[in-house]
């Protein structure tokens, strides 16, 4: 009788123990793997950001320094040349596109003109439509040689007085609008950041 009950206890416990073992070993394996890959992952993320920053900043840029800004949804970097003189700013901002978030890096000169725009993450947009917003034919429209309060697609021009209009990618108004609002946001962030530093 006793033997029987012992056996049933074993029958209940052994699967639980086995599952627990598998889980523990897996978790330990993952902890190790995460420890090993943490540095490369951070490095890869830094590289992606750096590459997108360099794409919108003047070639003389020697170093970038992150500025502290009150707006948490964007990041602002000051680019300096070899002598330590501020030559431009890079602002990364994001907005909701058609399939998800679109992230944009905007290069802004010290005079407030947008230098260049790079759409560095639009992986959730439709390939062939929204994804075309990262191509130079579209992004080059933002490089106007004057300081403007913001950008909007031609369709929205009547409600956005004073904004510079850009032609949306055909069939991708929502994605184009998102990029335009990212750049507008970047211009606002730039203004905030530089005003604060002047004070």
């Amino acid at each position: 009788m006793k033997k029987h009950s012992e056996r049933s206890v074993f029958r209940v416990l052994s699967p639980v123990a086995a599952l627990l073992c598998v889980c523990t070993v897996s978790a330990a394996l993952l902890a190790g793997a995460s420890e090993i890959t943490r540095e490369p992952i951070n490095e890869a993320q830094r590289q992606t950001q750096l590459a997108s920053m360099m794409a919108v900043l003047p070639p003389e840029t020697a170093d970038c320094e992150k500025m502290s800004i009150p707006d948490s949804s964007a990041e602002c970097f000051r680019a300096v040349d070899r002598d330590g003189k501020t030559i431009a700013y890079a602002v990364s901002s994001s907005a909701g596109g058609y399939g998800g978030r679109i992230s944009v890096m905007t290069g802004i000169g010290t005079d407030g003109c947008v230098l260049a725009v790079s759409v560095y993450d639009n992986s959730t947009e439709t390939p062939g439509l929204g994804a075309k917003t990262s191509e130079p034919e579209f992004t080059s429209q933002f490089a106007v040689n004057k300081a403007v309060p913001g950008f909007c697609v031609t369709k929205d021009a009547p409600v956005n007085d004073g904004f510079e209009t850009i032609d949306a990618v055909t069939g991708a108004t929502i994605s184009s609008r998102a990029v335009a609002s990212c750049v507008t946001h970047a211009v606002e962030v730039y203004k905030q950041a530089t005003e604060e530093n002047d004070e």
Binding site: C23, L30, A31
Partner: peptide
């Protein structure tokens, strides 16, 4: 800092 366990924990 255990977000790497996400997939494992969620499926279980």
């Amino acid at each position: 800092g255990m977000d790497y366990l996400q997939t494992l924990v969620f499926i279980l």
